Amino acid sequence: MKVLLSINPEHVENIFSGLKTYEFRRKVFARKDVKTVVVYCTMPIGKIVGEFDIDCIIEDKPSDLWKETEGGSGITKKFFDSYFEGREVAYALKIGEVRAYDTHVNPSDVLDNFTPPQSYMYMDRERFKGTNSRQLELVW
């Protein structure tokens, strides 16, 4: 199973360059069969640009999570603390194999009624338009 995550351009660049090896989240997927993240790069890009496999998901108190992941965080401690402010639990997706798409995909071309998810979106077959099979192969 794949999920689509909205990620800011700066973080997308750091993920695909290998600088950022953890993607932080306030909540994670209810489904346990999620293995791959499809990366939607937020505006001004506004495209699906690639994907990465999830090596594992780490769940911990924010302070302990930072100690474990800071070397691959790709963000400052200040940003991390602000993102998890008031939270007792924090999550980090350990990024496995990364695959940038040669051709970026306009999500509205392949997904019905696309709006960028605030948290995540399961990539279920029912969501796909099925009109552009070449682009569909990339994200499915």
Rank of each mutant, 00 (worst) to 15 (best):
M1T: 07
E10C: 02
V12P: 00
E13L: 06
N14P: 07
I15F: 03
F16L: 07
L19K: 12
T21K: 12
E23G: 07
E23D: 13
F24C: 10
R25F: 09
K27N: 02
K27M: 01
K27L: 02
V28G: 11
V28Q: 11
A30D: 15
D33S: 07
K35L: 05
V38K: 05
M43C: 00
I48E: 03
V49D: 00
V49Q: 01
E51H: 04
F52M: 03
I58H: 05
D60G: 03
S63T: 13
S63I: 14
L65D: 00
T69P: 01
G74K: 12
S82W: 08
Y83E: 07
F84Y: 10
R87F: 03
V89H: 11
A92F: 08
A92C: 13
L93Q: 13
G96F: 00
E97Y: 01
D102Y: 02
V105Q: 03
N106H: 05
N106W: 00
D109T: 04
V110R: 05
L111A: 07
L111Y: 05
D112S: 11
N113H: 08
N113V: 01
F114R: 03
T115P: 11
T115D: 15
T115S: 15
Q118Y: 10
S119N: 15
S119K: 11
R125T: 13
R127K: 11
G130D: 15
T131D: 14
T131M: 15
S133N: 00
R134E: 15
V139R: 06
